[in-house]
Design a protein around this nucleic acid. Structure first.
Length: 586
RNA sequence: CGGGCUGUGGCGCAGCUUGGUUAGCGCGCUUGUCUGGGGGACAAGAGGUCGUGGGUUCAAAUCCCGCCAGCCCGACCA
């Protein structure tokens, strides 16, 4: 039994000034956590209980799907990460340290290498596979900017698992098993989630999905269909299929457009001097050609131009996800100087293309559909062309998903409008394939006695982040209100009488009764604390069932309050324990 | 890493502009009395390197510079 008179906790009457998002504010205020370091939190007894309950659910479901729990060190030697080049590639987010001998170490941000090498160490033939291993481990990432309390720390608890299979079909099954287990886990946690398609980046062809909890404080933006179940990370979202433009367009004409280096000025100028007969010109009639510089992994640079409708911005993250592993940035001054054919503000596709004299690749966003007509630059200062038709007057070297996605864009599956939402990544499932196994030489003998490279998946759940996400979803103006599956206790007994009187005795007896029925009980047995304070604390702490033993005892009743339903029911003392048990199981 | 704001007892804040008593208020904490169904009252207390290092000055919480930390926005985030 937890006694509030003894419990190591202090609730705060006011919000801590450094906490902004609800989960951070309430977890600190209700005495679950305290900040200990930049991006690091101390778990106080209440918080630690919630974390352990979440962890237990994750563990149960992982075990149930046949994964085996192991535990690696968080402190890892550099050389292993050298072999996969992640010592370098992981960049500044890797926590690095040096021991007394000057040897380099790191604090594990994720453990692909260690698991791969351990499997290589123990297993060597196909009957050993498949195998899925997992751990629940403290992870470290040297985030440039920890924020939002537990939602984005530098030290956090994560369940990471890895599957090892002999072939693609096996990997697919391991992946699906994990995906199913994740769905069960998040359902049990009562954490709403959306599974979104994620970019697999350089691993081309591999499958990756993220589990996002749709909460405002989240830092991921995703797209979901208002009609079907399509959802995707904005980087991975595909443009809905658009009809080609089959309307006949007038022949191309050049117009002199002095000082029209921007889309807005161009549209204004055209409406004033070259009005359309049918409707005013708009930014969406213009073709904007954005010049980007790609930096390839070998260090070489390439200039490319991407054509998008003038009313849209280019989303560099989406572009980067598609040209990965190359990195993308806008072309700088020196870059323009090296390409005299690119007349800034007046760039048009007529002179572009890999086969052109300039030799610059020209890519089009799918929103620039075949047959559509555009106003665009004439590649001479102060001159634009009208009615330049895609396919008739210019061509491209390929398509690229480049524009920022907007609410209302058509769903790639059902063409109904999509919406944009915010979420936090609480899980990620990833078919790694043979990337790590290749680099670390994880091979086993197959049935024919041949060495084959093992294919892998990696799967993560942010356990501490899940706690924060649950707090983010389940709260109101009074405080937290935990789902029963993860609450720090099942029932919170509030004693409003003075010590040693009948009320106290009845409350203590009820608490013991509840405990003997298998419930975890938190009792507010503090003496000399007014009822108002106790009620406020109970609501703030957020245990889903609150039983008040107080003045209604005179009528033989206690009050059973349901924090979620907001109900307050008088129940005879003798029936209270049963009623609470029923509520807790309901 | 860039921009903005901030750092004063456990928590929330005032004081800083214009340097000068013993650094103040509310909450919380301790003791006592009262009170006892919505953060109650009265009284007496404890608790402070004013983030930190340097500088200016007879004198710095206050002015100047560096650093550290926090929050927000952006960049970053397999």
């Amino acid at each position: 039994m937890l006694r509030l008179s003894q419990l190591f906790v202090r609730t705060l009457r006011e919000d801590p000034s450094d906490a902004e998002v609800p989960s951070h504010r309430l977890l600190v205020r209700a005495g679950y956590i305290r900040r200990a370091a930049p991006g690091g939190y101390t778990w106080l007894p209440l918080g630690w209980r919630v974390l352990r309950r979440v962890e237990a659910i994750v563990r149960e479901e992982m075990d149930a799907m046949g994964a085996q729990e192991v535990h690696f060190p968080a402190l890892l030697p550099r050389d292993v990460y050298e072999q996969t080049n992640r010592w370098n590639e992981y960049g500044d987010n890797l926590f690095r340290l040096v021991d007394r001998k000057g040897a380099d170490y790191l604090l594990g941000p994720t453990h692909e290498e260690m698991f791969t090498l351990r499997v290589k160490d123990l297993y060597s033939s196909y009957p050993d596979l498949p195998v899925s291993l997992y751990q629940i481990q403290t992870k470290y990432r040297d985030e440039a900017r920890p924020r939002a309390g537990l939602l984005r720390g530098r030290e956090f608890l994560m369940k990471d698992s890895y599957s090892f299979d002999i072939d693609g079909a096996g990997l697919k099954k391991s992946y699906d098993d994990h995906r199913d287990a994740y769905e069960r886990i998040f359902r049990r946690l009562h954490l709403p989630y959306v599974i979104v398609k994620a970019m697999s980046g350089a691993m081309g062809g591999s499958v990756s999905e993220e589990f996002l909890a749709p909460i405002e404080a989240g830092e991921d933006t995703f797209v979901r269909c208002t009609s079907c179940d399509y959802a995707a990370n904005t980087e991975a979202v595909a443009t809905g299929s658009l009809e080609p433009d089959s309307v006949g367009h007038p022949a191309t004409t050049e117009v002199v457009t002095p000082g029209c280096g921007t889309i807005a000025s161009l549209v204004d100028f055209l409406n004033a001097n070259n009005p359309r007969p049918d409707r005013p010109w708009g930014a969406s009639d213009t073709l904007k050609n954005v010049v980007l510089s790609l930096r390839h992994p070998d260090g070489s640079r390439e200039t490319v131009v991407i054509g998008v409708p003038g009313d849209r911005e280019v989303d560099l993250k989406r572009v980067e996800a598609q040209v990965s592993p190359a990195e993308v940035e806008p072309l700088d001054e020196a870059g323009f100087a090296a390409h005299p054919r690119l007349v800034r503000g007046y760039i048009g596709p007529q002179v572009l293309g890999a086969a052109s004299a300039a030799g610059i690749r020209y890519l089009l966003d799918p929103n620039v559909v075949p047959g559509s007509a555009w106003v665009t630059g004439a590649n001479r200062a102060d001159t634009h062309v009208l009615h330049l038709v895609n396919g008739r007057d210019f061509s491209c070297d390929g398509e690229i998903e480049a524009v920022e996605v907007r609410a209302g864009d058509p769903c790639p599956v059902c063409s109904r409008p999509v919406e944009i939402a915010r979420g936090i990544e609480i899980g990620h499932v990833f078919q790694l394939g043979r990337l790590y196994a290749d680099k670390l030489g994880l091979q086993v003998l197959d049935q024919n006695g041949k060495q084959v490279t093992v294919t892998m998946g990696s799967y993560g759940i942010g356990v501490s982040r899940a706690v924060a996400s649950i707090a983010e979803v389940f709260n109101d103006e009074l405080g937290l209100k935990w789902p029963r599956a993860v609450a720090p206790a099942d029932v919170h007994v509030v004693v409003t009488g003075k010590n040693d009187d009948a009320i106290t005795q009845a409350a203590e007896a009820l608490a013991r009764d509840l405990e003997s029925r298998g419930l975890e009980v938190l009792i507010d047995d503090r003496n000399g604390v007014s009822p108002g304070v106790k009620f406020k604390d109970a609501e703030l702490i957020g245990i889903p069932t609150i039983v008040v033993v107080g003045k209604s005892l005179a009528d033989g009743n206690v009050e059973v309050r349901d924090r979620h339903a907001g109900t307050n029911t008088a129940v005879a003392v003798g029936e209270a324990a049963e009623a609470v048990v029923a509520l807790s199981r309901g």
